[in-house]
């Protein structure tokens, strides 16, 4: 069904969804000038949920998840993350940003810092962790993403897949409770996609709350507990993966699925 077959057995023992609400979005709207990018978004994410967001290009997926850590500002409705409401209050923004990690399509590693420094920068300056301790944490996560030996290199010396794994490790060093991914594999060559997805699957197995914009439907099938389809700034349809792929309700979803799955 997808280009990517998930080979290994996935350990679902920690993938439990609690009643606790991680993210609550009510009637959220956003405009870019005259352009209404997000319309009446309502979304509740429970702790431990793994949500895949898909939809045609320009449908507002990036904008939606970027609103969650306030890289974009919404104009109406509320976004409540971990019980904190996102307003222009700097304190709230700081609090939410330190709880929500994010990975970008183009990695956005800091080219002037080594891999290790990339990972320790925020813990040291934001969390006020002693350097030694920050480095230990960083090495721990670099081992987890399987590149501890690259710690003293600069980002430019790494392959795309390695860079994206560093970016994931860098976010994890802040010990976030929620991870946002914006097309983390779109800029990668096929053989590198797998190493990044593996890392993400491991994260899911540990019970991380994840919102993931991706077109990797194999990943959605194997890991997600909910798939959301967006078009023209609206959430058109959402369902658990099996039903979503096998029994799409809306015509737009059907059209989209047929295009991307190449039926």
């Amino acid at each position: 069904m997808s280009e990517l077959a998930i080979e290994r057995q996935i350990d679902r023992s920690h993938m439990t969804i609690s009643d606790e609400v991680a993210i609550q979005i009510n009637n959220m709207n956003k405009w870019y000038g005259q352009f209404h990018v997000l319309r009446d978004i309502n979304l509740t994410v429970q702790r431990g949920e793994r949500i895949v967001i898909c939809g045609p290009s320009g449908s507002g997926k990036s904008t939606l998840i970027r609103c969650i850590n306030r890289l974009e500002e919404h104009q109406s409705g509320d976004i409540i993350v971990d019980g904190t409401e996102l307003t222009s209050d700097l304190k709230n923004i700081d609090k939410i940003r330190s709880e929500v990690g994010m990975c970008f399509q183009h990695f956005n590693l800091f080219p002037h810092l080594t891999i290790l420094e990339n990972c320790t920068l925020a813990p040291i300056w934001v969390r006020k962790v002693p350097r030694k301790e920050a480095e230990d944490i960083a090495m721990h996560y670099l081992e987890k993403v399987k590149i501890p030996d690259q710690a003293h290199k600069y980002p430019g010396m790494l392959s795309g897949g390695q860079q994206q794994r560093v970016a994931i490790a860098r976010s994890l060093c802040m010990k976030p409770r929620i991870m946002l991914f914006d097309e983390p594999t779109s800029a990668l060559d096929p053989e590198m996609i797998k190493e990044v997805l593996d890392t993400m699957i491991e994260l899911a197995e540990e019970g991380m709350t994840m919102l993931c914009v991706t077109h990797e439907m194999g990943f959605a099938q194997a890991v997600a507990n909910r798939v959301i389809f967006m078009d023209q700034g609206q959430i058109i349809e959402q369902n658990e993966p099996h039903a979503f792929f096998n029994d799409p309700q809306s015509d737009r979803t059907k059209l989209f699925l047929s295009q991307i799955l190449g039926h």
Partner: peptide
Amino acid sequence: KGQTEAAFALGLRPNRTMRLVILPQ
């Protein structure tokens, strides 16, 4: 712009972002 966004996403404030991330580059 991605550099600023990555720094913000990590919780760095604008002035620290300027000093630690943008200016050195």
